[in-house]
């Protein structure tokens, strides 16, 4: 037994002896999730029954579903990108980042026509972008890196899932998208010019819960995270098994799964502690994103990023 475990055990023993404040059964934590490589540990946890009854995964098709359901109160938490979290927060719903599922390191890409070879050449080009999503943030980051103004490009606001069709119809010259759309465009002759690995620790996929749920149903939040990190452990330890399972669910080949995994960093517990600490990378990036999004008119009001991330729900360890 390691010292950490011993400590953990004594703390756990102490807590259980003290009797955790019992809460009236608030029902399961309704957690919205949609297909994304970073959220796979949660799917794995569900498939292996590592999620207890306190957590109910609500599968959706996109982050948009989750955001709407969060605001309407149909969900207590969801897997979102950091900028989506800020959007929801700015609408008045207080969300807490309780875990970082992945950090994009190449998953979000800028696909361009082969004729465009550098970022400055984007000037005057039609760029497909989902302004209301992570794609929008990515675009502004790209423009920032390229030294271009917002008005220097023609933004074609389209959901990412429709970028491939727009591309094939020749309606756009570039697309800010992610897998699997990126692969589709690449197959259609697109070229990867820029991806999120060029702007490290900018695009986070996080697990968020409402403050209300965090306060009234903290046990379920812990269960959710324990499930996520158990799934992540399986993903890492039994890569041979996970690859096939992810491939099955996403409908792609195991090789493509391997490539997708290569485009994200999956932070473990220790890394999560680092990301979520007060005034840590998450809160810093949230602050910078809020300013950017406010400037770009993507949100109406500054959501305030104080106490946005909370590492206290992270399990001490997973077996």
């Amino acid at each position: 037994m390691q010292r950490r475990e011993f400590l953990g055990l004594s703390i756990a023993a102490g807590l259980s002896a003290a009797g955790l404040p019992g809460c009236s059964d608030p029902g399961p934590l309704r957690f919205g999730i949609h297909p994304w490589i970073g959220y796979e540990p949660l799917y794995l946890a569900r498939d292996f029954n590592w999620l207890p009854d306190t957590v109910a995964l609500v599968p959706g098709t996109s982050a948009k579903d989750s955001m709407e359901a969060l605001i309407s109160g149909a969900l207590d938490g969801a897997a979102l990108t950091l900028d989506e979290t800020i959007r929801v927060r700015s609408s008045g719903l207080e969300l807490l980042v309780v875990a970082v599922a992945d950090v994009s390191a190449g998953a979000d890409v800028l696909m361009v026509k082969p004729s465009i070879t550098e970022l400055t050449a984007l000037k005057g080009q039609r760029i497909a972008v989902e302004l209301n999503g992570v794609s929008g943030v990515m675009l502004f980051k790209i423009l920032e890196v390229a030294g271009l103004g917002r008005s220097d490009v023609i933004k074609v606001d389209l959901p990412v899932s429709q970028h491939a069709q727009a591309w094939s119809r020749g309606e756009v010259d570039a697309s800010v998208c992610y897998e699997p759309t990126a692969s589709l465009i690449e197959n259609a002759g697109g070229v990867r010019l820029f991806d999120s690995s060029d702007i490290p620790e900018t695009i986070f996929d996080v697990l968020v819960v409402t403050r209300k749920a965090a306060e009234s149903n903290s046990r379920a939040v812990r269960d959710l995270l324990t499930g996520h990190f158990t799934g992540l452990q399986h993903l890492v330890r039994s890569m041979h098994d996970s690859m096939y399972r992810i491939a099955t669910r996403q409908g792609i080949s195991p090789d493509e799964v391997r490539m997708a995994l290569a485009s994200v960093m999956l932070p473990d517990l220790a890394a999560n502690q680092r990301y979520l600490r007060a005034a840590g990378p998450i809160e810093t990036m949230a602050g910078s994103l809020s300013r950017l999004m406010l400037a770009e008119g993507m949100i109406d009001q500054n959501p305030g990023i104080q106490r946005m991330s909370d590492p206290s729900f992270l399990p001490a360890r997973v077996s």
């Binding site: 039994s238 041979h240 096939y244 399972r245 491939a247 099955t248």
Partner: peptide, 13 residues
């Protein structure tokens, strides 16, 4: 398991 060529009852190693 998509892409796995054999029938299987367990997880993979």
């Amino acid at each position: 398991l998509a892409g796995f060529p054999y029938v299987v009852s367990t997880r993979l190693y």
